[in-house]
Amino acid sequence: MNRQSTASSLPAPVLPHVWEPASAQEAITLKRQYGADSAYVAGSTLLRTQWEGGLLTIPAHMIRLDTIEGLNGIMEDEQQIRIGALTTLRECGHDHRLRIHGNTCSTACRHIAAPAVRNLGTIGGNISSAVGDMIPALLVHDARLVWMDTEHHPSEYEQELVDWLEQVRVGRRSLYAVLLGIVIDKSGPDTAPDLHNHQNSAPFHTSLSSEPSWREISFYRKVGRREAFTPSLVTVAFRALMNREGVLVNVKAAAGGGAGLAMRLSRCEQLLEGKVYDPRYTAELAALVEKEWVSYSDPFASESYRRQTAGNLLAAGLWETLHQEMERG
């Protein structure tokens, strides 16, 4: 084929306009004006893979989010950690406050892609993709998303991550809302369990009131086809409080990975809630994850393989973590 004549017969590529909104409201105005021909752009690491892979066309209008003030950095008050949506994954992974109060999130940030990608990629972009590997970790921290949407009253509002994922699942997510930040409640080694929420849960093997010292146990596990910048096959996260007798309360487990939507595993949580961990739960938990988690098949892995992997990851992760805790005393 004559390369020169082929090249000349192709239309010249249209270069996108790059807009600099000064506020989230301005960004939304631009998005409403240009609709499907536009995209919000933060680190653009995942968008680039989708553009180059032909999954998405490069939009005619790129709407920068880095020109909006206040979307960068991590802040804390007495109860909460707030992460700006444009905070890089690197910064999140290195932040000591997040390591203390959001350990699985911190671990997740250090295991997404490679260091160079984490220097550019943002936590907001990871979440907005709806398939980012941060999401299972944020789910076990009951994370809330802070949005700006001029069609919503009030225009700035918080939404449970789990509720937003449900909107995504049913195709009802807002196409115009700008993610401003992520909020997680602080936790720590001596966080007291919420007794009120356990009135109707499984019976405890020991009295909560007799045990003042509770510590958080958590882990995050990921299985991928390769290191570097590939989507995971399966990602799981787990978080609970445990006392000296080994009673687990406030159990939270989630699974996700690949192009599938992450979800909380409530039946797995119920299995362990209020119980002292027993090795027989290992097989039971793995089997329950396989039943509960909804995944998908693609040319790389079948749904049943993903489910089995998630079950094994969660069960083995819990077993390993508890043994490490016992060794620590």
């Binding site: 690491t45 680039r48 490679a114 160079a116 990608v117 220097n119 570097a228 910048f229």
Partner: peptide, 27 residues
């Protein structure tokens, strides 16, 4: 690869490694 997986296009931006295939001029 042109999608940030292989690192062949790695450069330092203000001392930090970045994939130049992922980075746009304005960034």
């Amino acid at each position: 690869c042109e999608i940030g997986r292989c690192g062949a296009c790695m450069v330092l931006i203000d001392g930090q490694p970045m994939n130049s295939c992922l980075m746009m001029a304005y960034q």
